[in-house]
Design a binder for these strands. Structure first.
Lengths: 152, 152
DNA sequence: TTATATTAAGACAAATAAGTCTTATATTGA
DNA sequence: TCAATATAAGACTTATTTGTCTTAATATAA
């Protein structure tokens, strides 16, 4: 798996906040978000705490509380979110996990993976919350996970 | 992490077998391999069993036993190994884990990830054990993991 | 100021991945 | 045939990720 589940949840939630936000400092309830996205409330809370610590979101306790974007959505990229949750390793690590892999002492897939990795980084960096959530509305994209029912 | 540890070990071991093999049906000892690559013997054994079950390697018990390539190294690709160990999901799954993501109902990164994923697949498919292990010899590439010493 | 609603924090539990150990099975060579 | 050597198989342990629950802290509004 390329992104952890926590990271994909963080991305979906951020897109949700962006979609629900039409003015600055508009707080979105985590409980409502977890209900609509079908993500466990407590788990989502923990993930969003990472985003607030990384200054991507701000949070407010108490009634009318929730989370809000810390800055205009066009200044928040998917890369920001991925790095905040999964850390930067995806964009620097050797595909085969060989420590010290680099241009001096490359692993057998060093060149190609370095290029592919960079493409990936550019893709994430190019996707801002503004244009992605615009796509979500325009194309009616689904953000929510399927509801988990009993297995029979 | 893109590839599981088991998968990277499987790739390194396959390259090791290819490098040590100079004629057909030449068996390489797993014990010796695990020593030289600094991979736990039992864990490596388990991983290689997947490769023999997928008909990438063949194995022989008893003295002079070990594993050997099941076919000429130019007919074995990294893609074969990745799929044998990690399964095919990496090359078909939605980056955000949304089930049902596809061209009809795309996730917010569907297009770009589909393209990036395909590049990755082509990269793995293009790397045969023959030319990769040739590179390993020509460029003196390291295959082994660092020896794990005590942490102080 | 107090009750209520909400996030923060951290302990705990479950699921999965990684790694270890023991026993069974097959092959070799004396 | 028998002892030694190697992989196969699977039980078991440990580490990490995912998910749940409880309590603390904070903001709102009556």
């Amino acid at each position: 798996m390329v992104l952890s589940k926590a990271c994909t949840y963080g991305i979906l939630a951020s897109l949700y906040v962006a979609r629900e936000t039409h003015q600055e400092n508009e707080f979105v309830s985590i409980r409502q978000m977890s209900d609509e996205l079908n993500i466990s409330f407590h788990f989502l809370t923990k993930i969003l705490q990472k985003l607030t610590k990384s200054n991507i979101l701000i949070s407010l306790k108490g009634p009318k509380g929730g989370v809000a974007l810390s800055r205009p959505p066009k200044l928040i990229t998917m890369l920001d979110i991925v790095i905040a949750i999964d850390g930067p390793d995806l964009f620097s690590e050797c595909l085969l996990g060989l420590p010290g892999c680099g241009s001096q002492k490359p692993c057998p897939v060093h060149e190609q993976w370095t290029a592919a990795r960079e493409d990936l980084r550019i893709m994430f960096q190019g996707k801002t919350l503004a244009d992605t959530s615009h796509d979500v509305e325009a194309l009616n994209l689904r953000l929510s996970l399927p509801k988990m029912e009993n297995k029979w």
